[in-house]
Design a protein around this nucleic acid. Sequence first.
DNA 1: CAAGATTGAGACGTCAATCTTC
DNA 2: GAAGATTGACGTCTCAATCTTG
Lengths: 166, 166
Amino acid sequence: MPKPCDATILAWTRLMRAHRAALTQAEQVLKEEGLPGLEWYDALLELERSGPLRPRDLQGKLLLAQYNLSRLLDRMAEAGLIERRSCPQDGRGQFIALTAEGRKLRQRMWPVYARAIQSAIGARLGPREAAELAELLGRIYGAHERGPAAGSGKPASAPHGRTSRA
Amino acid sequence: MPKPCDATILAWTRLMRAHRAALTQAEQVLKEEGLPGLEWYDALLELERSGPLRPRDLQGKLLLAQYNLSRLLDRMAEAGLIERRSCPQDGRGQFIALTAEGRKLRQRMWPVYARAIQSAIGARLGPREAAELAELLGRIYGAHERGPAAGSGKPASAPHGRTSRA
DNA sequence: CAAGATTGAGACGTCAATCTTC
DNA sequence: GAAGATTGACGTCTCAATCTTG
């Protein structure tokens, strides 16, 4: 394994710093609005998109450890955002389902989240540059998947736009 | 504030994912070698570069909250890596100084860290692309910090690399 | 025994309150 | 009173051990 070149090291450093700056800002804004953190948003969105899921599948989509997800689901269930349903085919598993409250909360979170994304990236990079950045970052983890945005599913009156729904 | 465009949202998502993937790998490798995490490395490196520092100044360089840094220093002092010295000019402050052990540990960590950086970025992007990525990420947090050759004057490929962490 | 999922204990992060010195 | 720094209380993360079902 060759040693990393200067440009590689600089890219690493900035990846760490840019992530921290962007994430801190976004979490800050959500907190000021009395909303939960981004992890909750991601879980809610994935459940809204992909219907009731087994924890194992959700874990894969969210890149969380099993024990971590288990406790996240505890908190979200206590907050009334999800339901744990038993799985008929496999007694070990469950199905995690979004509640109406969970759906509503995600919709309330999106405009705030979108503002943070725009402030952190959209305001600093043009569309062409953002696409270039996304391309380069995509190579770092090799995946090509969907983003955090999701329309309400309803027509035009939605407070948050239809965005990249792959 | 306009809504974020699709490319912006995709860049956000990939920033979050790429960061997590890269960081998780690096922390994993360090742990396997029985070494502490990247936060310790960053603190050790900053102290090695900038001599004894007051916690307030270290906090600025590491982008940590004050209470967070206070506890980090507790652990590092207990491990014998740093020393807390009283500050003659200002009784409220201190000077945090690296010990010989701290210096040795950072030197042991660097090759492992460098391997992780190379694996996460260097192996996937050419030097030109890495520089492009660094440039785009730099705009996200607006910083233009010292180049890889700054500080002691040693080259970045020495066990003195410019690194940092979330 | 293997896989899905949870739990107890301990490390770490976070908030607000606190202490000391300017 | 303001700034530098720490502390107590509480929440979250992490590891290993555990429980249950296939």
